[in-house]
Nucleic acid binder design. Structure first.
Lengths: 333, 333
DNA sequence: CTGAAAGCGCTTACAG
DNA sequence: CTGAAAGCGCTTACAG
């Protein structure tokens, strides 16, 4: 392996100068620069990143911890993260926990080991105290998740309002019995969407029957099961708000299996706006979360913190949007 | 920051011993071990990974280069990769090129810089000579892609046979005019699937009309467009083989828009077996690629090479499988 | 079983 | 604009 010494020797300069040229330090004469670059070229020299990382105490790498990379909502966030990471000269280490808390802890440990310069958490199953503790030491930003009452930098949408608007959309169409397929109530964002649903029902003076609320885990299968229960009621809802598009798609399958037409017999609105929402027929009405932008903003926030040029600990709330497609309409009769 | 010296001092041993204890070297007395561990605990010491990486000339990190992480086929491969990486103590650096060749080159450069110990390429837009060159120096395995006539370690399926079987399935149902929505012919795996289609047609003495073949880029939109052209013919095919599930889903949308029922009016078979194939109605018949297993095998192969315990340069061919669902049936009349 | 010492390959004050 | 020298925080032969 050729190293910097070899280059220095060939170019007749010190390693300090070689280092300066390669790091584009302007205080080197053009003549010397050329000489060094030529030597680099002749020897096919590549600086050793491991040495440089060590010396500079930075790997220019950031770990992103998420529950499931095959979930298209998260993979879109990751694409946003990666885009700005690349453009700002950083790398992203993948932390797919597959919903495993122990795995989450392992990834968080990478920042304690100084292996990465910062961390983006798109999942947070760990107790908030634990996360708060590391966040005092090291740049962390939460994407989608957040902790009430703490000032950890965060990029989210307003889940309560978004869920309220989804429900209101159904109310505006004339629905009065509206079922809610909830996300896991163990995580804030699941609770927030339920809160939004309740608010809308309350505002419109519609009774919230607990039998109209079914908890799922955001998957198609969970949506299917929840919908089956909802339809088994002797007074089934005429419209469904599902807290994720995948669950909404599961609900559509269940409705079809029961011989119901969407939206004529039952309206369905989802949440997220994943691509699959347009693969199905009819196309899914939903609440759009700007996943890619959540990624870009979170990464920009994090890198600003790492460079120390972040003004304060920001909490960004990005706009959501109702996307009208084909699965909602006015109720029969 | 507490460092190893502090621990050594507190435990009254040398840093060599601290290092041995932490790296679980067995040649340390139990008493000493306890003493060191206690000191580590008191000081809350974490070894600096950047220093350790540098010293050991290894980051225990592998970069995975792929065209698009939001594509569920690739994200499933990545999940497989990550699973074995985690279990074998490695990390994966994400290299989403978004189909950009320059980006691909940048990631490949990380191995030249010794930033990563190896690389998995699930895309290979770069000239094969370039990739072959790095593969001489450093552990690389190709996942899905391969280069004819070179011995770069590879994990793929037999795309030619898989495509032939897909086509044969349609022939067996009685179809004689079979359209093919091809992947990009600029990449081997696109060409291989076309080859399989042609073989099946030939074997069954069916004429291959060039108008029956439309090239797409694996996306839903491309499938939609290709299907529109196919249906515009004055003698349209009664069955379609699409080289990716996304294109098959696009073809289904196009058929519906034209008022055709799948499979009664036109049969469709896809390729990949992504989850979305079961979201749509009717559910998509397809060729299953074992994406997760491609990932696990590729990572195992790579890590074996890195540890130097790989016997030879292997080319693994994993089994595919026809998955019968609802989008294919016998032609009318 | 343990320690003293060298050294991994860079970068960075410091001095000139 | 350039170089000599120190040193980042570990690990690893080597010697005992």
């Amino acid at each position: 392996m050729t190293k910097m010494d070899d280059v220095a020797k060939l170019a007749n300069v010190s390693t300090a100068t070689v280092s300066r040229v390669l790091s584009k330090n302007p205080n080197v004469s053009l003549k010397t620069q050329r000489r060094v670059l030529e030597a680099v070229d002749i020897l096919g020299y590549k600086p050793n990143r491991l040495a440089s990382n060590f010396r500079k105490r930075s790997s220019k790498t950031v770990v992103v911890v998420l529950p499931d990379i095959t979930n298209s909502f998260f993979s879109k966030i990751v694409q946003g993260l990666e885009e700005v990471a690349q453009s700002r000269g950083y790398h992203v280490l993948l932390g797919d926990t597959r919903n495993n808390v122990e795995s989450e802890r392992n990834f968080i440990d990478l920042v304690n080991q100084k292996f990465v310069d910062g961390m983006i958490l798109a999942t947070a199953r760990l107790p908030k105290e634990e996360i708060l503790a590391v966040s005092q030491e090291i740049p962390i930003v939460l994407a989608c998740e957040y902790f009430d009452g703490f000032d950890i930098p965060t990029v989210t949408i307003d889940n309560v309002s978004a869920a309220r608007e989804a429900t209101q959309h159904l109310v505006n169409l004339g629905h009065r019995r509206i079922g809610f397929i909830s996300g896991p109530l163990s995580i804030v964002l699941g609770r927030d969407r339920l809160k939004g649903y309740r608010q809308a029902m309350l505002i419109n003076e519609l009774p919230v029957e607990e039998s109209l609320i079914q908890e799922g885990d955001f998957t198609v299968q969970a949506g299917y099961n929840a919908m089956m229960k909802l339809m088994a009621s002797n007074h089934p809802p005429s419209a469904i708000f599902a807290a994720s598009d995948e669950m909404a798609i599961g609900a559509m399958k269940a409705a079809r299996n029961k011989g119901l037409n969407v939206p004529e017999d039952v309206s369905i609105i989802g949440f997220d706006d994943i691509p699959a929402g347009t693969y199905v027929h009819p196309e899914l009405t939903t609440i759009r979360q700007p996943a890619f932008e959540i990624g870009t903003q979170a990464m920009n926030l994090l890198l600003d913190m790492i460079k120390g040029c972040a003004k304060e600990r920001k909490q960004l709330v990005l706009p959501h949007q109702v996307v009208l497609r084909e699965t909602t309409t006015s109720p029969r009769g």
